[in-house]
Amino acid sequence: MADVTDGEFTDFVNERGDKLLRVAYALAGSQHAAEDLLQNALAKAYARWPRIRGDAEPYVKRILYHDQVSGWRRLSRRREVPMAELPERPGVCDSSHDSELRLLLREALRALPPRQRAVLTLRYLEDLSVAETATILGCRAGTVASQTAKALARLRQLVPGLDEMTTRAEVTQ
Protein backbone atom coordinates (compact mmCIF):
# COMPACT_ATOMS: atom_id res chain seq x y z
CA MET A 1 0.00 0.00 0.00
CA ALA A 2 2.79 2.40 0.92
CA ASP A 3 4.58 1.58 -2.33
CA VAL A 4 1.44 2.38 -4.30
CA THR A 5 1.08 5.70 -2.48
CA ASP A 6 4.76 6.54 -2.94
CA GLY A 7 4.58 5.72 -6.63
CA GLU A 8 1.45 7.79 -7.19
CA PHE A 9 2.84 10.66 -5.16
CA THR A 10 6.20 10.62 -6.99
CA ASP A 11 4.45 10.54 -10.35
CA PHE A 12 2.30 13.46 -9.27
CA VAL A 13 5.26 15.56 -8.13
CA ASN A 14 7.28 14.71 -11.24
CA GLU A 15 4.37 15.70 -13.43
CA ARG A 16 3.08 18.80 -11.63
CA GLY A 17 6.02 19.86 -9.48
CA ASP A 18 7.39 22.53 -11.83
CA LYS A 19 3.97 24.06 -12.31
CA LEU A 20 3.34 24.12 -8.57
CA LEU A 21 6.79 25.53 -7.90
CA ARG A 22 6.06 28.37 -10.31
CA VAL A 23 2.94 29.24 -8.35
CA ALA A 24 4.84 28.95 -5.07
CA TYR A 25 7.54 31.27 -6.41
CA ALA A 26 4.99 33.89 -7.44
CA LEU A 27 3.51 33.65 -3.95
CA ALA A 28 6.71 33.60 -1.94
CA GLY A 29 8.91 35.81 -4.10
CA SER A 30 12.16 33.88 -3.68
CA GLN A 31 13.54 30.50 -4.61
CA HIS A 32 14.24 29.32 -1.10
CA ALA A 33 10.89 30.44 0.30
CA ALA A 34 9.07 28.93 -2.68
CA GLU A 35 10.74 25.55 -2.23
CA ASP A 36 9.98 25.61 1.48
CA LEU A 37 6.37 26.55 0.88
CA LEU A 38 5.90 23.83 -1.72
CA GLN A 39 7.76 21.12 0.22
CA ASN A 40 5.54 21.76 3.19
CA ALA A 41 2.39 21.63 1.10
CA LEU A 42 3.49 18.42 -0.61
CA ALA A 43 4.40 16.77 2.69
CA LYS A 44 0.96 17.58 4.05
CA ALA A 45 -0.61 16.20 0.89
CA TYR A 46 1.47 13.03 1.17
CA ALA A 47 0.32 12.52 4.76
CA ARG A 48 -3.27 12.58 3.57
CA TRP A 49 -2.73 11.05 0.14
CA PRO A 50 -5.17 8.13 0.51
CA ARG A 51 -7.89 10.57 1.56
CA ILE A 52 -7.49 12.96 -1.37
CA ARG A 53 -10.18 12.26 -3.89
CA GLY A 54 -9.73 13.25 -7.53
CA ASP A 55 -6.98 15.50 -8.78
CA ALA A 56 -4.48 16.38 -6.07
CA GLU A 57 -3.27 19.58 -7.73
CA PRO A 58 -6.13 21.81 -6.50
CA TYR A 59 -5.64 20.32 -3.05
CA VAL A 60 -1.93 21.18 -3.01
CA LYS A 61 -2.60 24.65 -4.39
CA ARG A 62 -5.18 25.22 -1.69
CA ILE A 63 -2.57 24.38 0.93
CA LEU A 64 -0.07 26.68 -0.78
CA TYR A 65 -2.41 29.67 -0.73
CA HIS A 66 -3.70 28.85 2.70
CA ASP A 67 -0.22 28.55 4.19
CA GLN A 68 0.99 31.70 2.49
CA VAL A 69 -1.95 33.88 3.42
CA SER A 70 -3.43 32.59 6.60
CA GLY A 71 -0.41 32.08 8.78
CA TRP A 72 -1.21 28.55 9.94
CA ARG A 73 2.51 28.08 9.45
CA ARG A 74 3.35 30.38 12.26
CA LEU A 75 7.10 30.00 12.21
CA SER A 76 7.52 30.17 8.47
CA ARG A 77 5.44 33.19 7.65
CA ARG A 78 6.65 35.25 4.77
CA ARG A 79 6.09 38.93 4.62
CA GLU A 80 6.68 41.72 2.25
CA VAL A 81 10.20 42.43 1.14
CA PRO A 82 10.85 46.09 1.75
CA MET A 83 12.57 48.14 -0.90
CA ALA A 84 15.03 50.56 0.60
CA GLU A 85 14.25 53.35 -1.83
CA LEU A 86 11.76 54.05 -4.53
CA PRO A 87 13.10 53.06 -7.94
CA GLU A 88 14.33 55.97 -9.99
CA ARG A 89 11.85 57.33 -12.46
CA PRO A 90 13.20 57.02 -16.00
CA GLY A 91 13.73 60.37 -17.65
CA VAL A 92 13.44 59.34 -21.31
CA CYS A 93 10.79 57.09 -22.80
CA ASP A 94 12.07 54.39 -25.09
CA SER A 95 11.95 50.63 -25.35
CA SER A 96 14.94 50.12 -23.08
CA HIS A 97 13.08 51.97 -20.39
CA ASP A 98 10.05 49.75 -20.93
CA SER A 99 12.28 46.77 -20.22
CA GLU A 100 13.63 48.54 -17.19
CA LEU A 101 10.10 49.24 -16.00
CA ARG A 102 9.21 45.59 -16.44
CA LEU A 103 12.16 44.68 -14.26
CA LEU A 104 11.20 47.26 -11.69
CA LEU A 105 7.64 46.01 -11.73
CA ARG A 106 8.80 42.48 -11.10
CA GLU A 107 10.84 43.63 -8.14
CA ALA A 108 7.94 45.72 -6.88
CA LEU A 109 5.71 42.65 -6.93
CA ARG A 110 8.13 41.03 -4.51
CA ALA A 111 7.67 43.97 -2.19
CA LEU A 112 3.92 43.52 -1.89
CA PRO A 113 2.45 41.99 1.25
CA PRO A 114 1.74 38.24 0.85
CA ARG A 115 -2.02 38.70 0.67
CA GLN A 116 -1.85 41.21 -2.14
CA ARG A 117 0.66 39.06 -4.02
CA ALA A 118 -1.62 36.05 -3.55
CA VAL A 119 -4.53 37.96 -5.07
CA LEU A 120 -2.43 39.01 -8.08
CA THR A 121 -1.07 35.48 -8.49
CA LEU A 122 -4.54 33.99 -8.58
CA ARG A 123 -5.89 36.67 -10.90
CA TYR A 124 -2.98 36.97 -13.33
CA LEU A 125 -0.95 33.79 -13.15
CA GLU A 126 -3.81 31.39 -12.67
CA ASP A 127 -6.27 33.55 -14.64
CA LEU A 128 -9.03 33.09 -12.12
CA SER A 129 -12.02 35.37 -11.88
CA VAL A 130 -12.59 37.66 -8.92
CA ALA A 131 -15.21 35.26 -7.59
CA GLU A 132 -12.93 32.22 -7.94
CA THR A 133 -10.08 34.11 -6.27
CA ALA A 134 -12.38 35.04 -3.41
CA THR A 135 -13.42 31.42 -2.97
CA ILE A 136 -9.85 30.15 -2.73
CA LEU A 137 -8.76 32.90 -0.35
CA GLY A 138 -11.90 32.59 1.73
CA CYS A 139 -12.99 36.20 1.42
CA ARG A 140 -15.59 38.31 -0.33
CA ALA A 141 -15.28 39.38 -3.96
CA GLY A 142 -15.20 42.97 -2.79
CA THR A 143 -12.16 42.21 -0.69
CA VAL A 144 -10.35 40.78 -3.71
CA ALA A 145 -11.14 44.01 -5.57
CA SER A 146 -9.93 46.18 -2.71
CA GLN A 147 -6.73 44.13 -2.31
CA THR A 148 -6.11 44.44 -6.03
CA ALA A 149 -6.62 48.20 -5.80
CA LYS A 150 -4.24 48.42 -2.85
CA ALA A 151 -1.66 46.34 -4.68
CA LEU A 152 -1.96 48.59 -7.70
CA ALA A 153 -1.57 51.70 -5.58
CA ARG A 154 1.54 50.25 -4.01
CA LEU A 155 2.95 49.29 -7.39
CA ARG A 156 2.32 52.81 -8.69
CA GLN A 157 4.19 54.13 -5.70
CA LEU A 158 7.11 51.79 -6.28
CA VAL A 159 7.17 52.11 -10.06
CA PRO A 160 6.28 55.71 -10.93
CA GLY A 161 6.51 55.01 -14.68
CA LEU A 162 3.82 52.35 -14.57
CA ASP A 163 0.88 54.46 -15.73
CA GLU A 164 3.00 56.25 -18.29
CA MET A 165 4.07 52.94 -19.79
CA THR A 166 0.58 51.51 -20.01
CA THR A 167 -0.98 54.74 -21.27
CA ARG A 168 1.65 55.06 -23.98
CA ALA A 169 1.14 51.47 -25.03
CA GLU A 170 -2.61 52.07 -25.39
CA VAL A 171 -2.09 55.23 -27.44
CA THR A 172 0.31 53.55 -29.83
CA GLN A 173 -1.91 50.53 -30.40
Binding site: D6, F9, T10, V13, N14, G17, D18, L21, R22, V23, A24, Y25, A26, G29, Q31, A34, E35, L38, Q39, L42, A43, Y46, R102, L105, R106, L109, R110, L120, T121, Y124, L125
Partner: peptide
Protein backbone atom coordinates in the same frame (compact mmCIF):
# COMPACT_ATOMS: atom_id res chain seq x y z
CA UNK B 1 3.01 39.93 -17.84
CA UNK B 2 4.80 41.08 -14.71
CA UNK B 3 3.34 38.34 -12.51
CA UNK B 4 4.31 35.77 -15.11
CA UNK B 5 7.76 37.32 -15.40
CA UNK B 6 8.08 36.91 -11.67
CA UNK B 7 6.95 33.28 -11.75
CA UNK B 8 9.31 32.58 -14.64
CA UNK B 9 12.20 33.52 -12.40
CA UNK B 10 11.94 30.22 -10.56
CA UNK B 11 14.67 27.67 -11.06
CA UNK B 12 13.56 24.06 -11.48
CA UNK B 13 14.32 21.77 -8.59
CA UNK B 14 15.30 18.45 -10.14
CA UNK B 15 14.96 16.45 -6.94
CA UNK B 16 11.64 17.93 -5.87
CA UNK B 17 9.91 14.54 -5.81
CA UNK B 18 12.68 12.97 -3.74
CA UNK B 19 12.70 15.79 -1.20
CA UNK B 20 8.91 15.91 -0.95
CA UNK B 21 8.74 12.18 -0.50
Amino acid sequence: AAVRDLADGVRPTPDLAVKAL
